[in-house]
Amino acid sequence: MPDKDAGTPRVFLYRHGQTEWSQNGRYTGKTELELTKNGENQVSASGKIIVGSGKLIDPANLAHVYTSPRRRAVQTFEIAFSEADRQALHDAKKVSLTERLAEWDYGQYEGLVTKEIRALRKDHGLDAERPWDIWRDGCEGGESSQQVSDRIDDLIQEIRAIHKGNMRGENPCDIVLVAHGHLLRAFTKRWLGYPLEFPLSLMLEPGAVGVLSYQHHNIDEPAMLVGYGFPVQE
């Protein structure tokens, strides 16, 4: 972060590592899956580089870690953070499981890939004029984009309450969100004030970390950090 923005609180978006279904492109909402071995390695690699004392995600600078209750997200938190850091965060009551970070409820589309979903919707007489877009159309028997947006907005309001009054580093206020691909991309759109159907193409690989913050130490200027300078290692 540039010197002029030093101390501004950040929100780290930590996507869980690979699962069998994410590897195959299958939509995974409520289904409980373990990380693959490769998924564990993805999280371990990113965790070693960016999580720890003096690193990008420094537990000493965290106000809270919010985690999706799905097992793949919890497992990611357990791998990325050392046992000692996890214990210290738990002891300080800085870790929460929250359904607000659960992956999109895909309803009838759970376990399907995109082409199968579009074929199913065609059988149901939908999308005659344009192809299905989850950001606009939601999921049959699952969540609409408005429902996802509402629960994300509730969490953003909670995070902004933590950040307000600490925009110049007055207190440790970084936040970590450990969750899922669609959910974290939806969170980014809402953080920036866009509706979910806004055509902002975002990518977040399994085990990867994104960063959100604010411009000009101003809570009314939420921003996305598209490039980040890592802390200097002594």
Results as ranks from 00 to 15, higher is better:
Asp3Gln: 13
Asp5Asn: 12
Pro9Lys: 04
Phe12Cys: 09
Phe12Asp: 01
Leu13Ser: 01
Tyr14Ile: 14
Arg15Tyr: 06
Gly17Tyr: 05
Gln18Gly: 09
Ser22His: 02
Glu32Ala: 04
Glu34Pro: 13
Glu34Gly: 14
Leu35Met: 05
Asn38Asp: 15
Ser46Ile: 13
Lys48Gln: 11
Ile49Tyr: 11
Ile50Met: 14
Val51Lys: 03
Leu56Ala: 09
Asp58Tyr: 00
Pro59Thr: 04
Pro59Trp: 06
His64Ile: 13
Tyr66Ile: 01
Pro69Ala: 07
Pro69Ser: 05
Ala73Thr: 09
Val74Glu: 10
Val74Gln: 11
Arg86Leu: 06
His90Val: 15
His90Asn: 15
Asp91Tyr: 09
Ala92Tyr: 02
Arg100His: 11
Leu101Cys: 00
Gly107Leu: 02
Gln108Pro: 11
Tyr109Ser: 00
Gly111Ser: 04
Gly111Tyr: 03
Lys115Trp: 12
Arg118His: 11
Arg121Pro: 05
Arg121Asn: 07
Arg121Phe: 03
Ala128Glu: 11
Trp135Asn: 07
Glu140Asn: 09
Glu140Trp: 04
Ser144His: 00
Gln146Arg: 10
Gln147Met: 07
Val148Lys: 02
Ile152Arg: 02
Asp154Phe: 12
Ile159Tyr: 07
Ala161Pro: 10
Ala161Ile: 11
Ile162Gln: 09
His163Val: 05
Gly165Asp: 07
Gly169Glu: 03
Glu170Ala: 09
Asn171Lys: 13
Pro172Met: 07
Val176Ser: 00
Val178Pro: 06
His182Ser: 11
Thr188Leu: 10
Lys189Cys: 08
Gly193Met: 02
Tyr194Gly: 08
Tyr194Glu: 04
Pro195Asn: 01
His216Ala: 12
Glu221Asp: 11
Pro222His: 06
Tyr228Thr: 14
Gln233Tyr: 12
Glu234Ser: 14
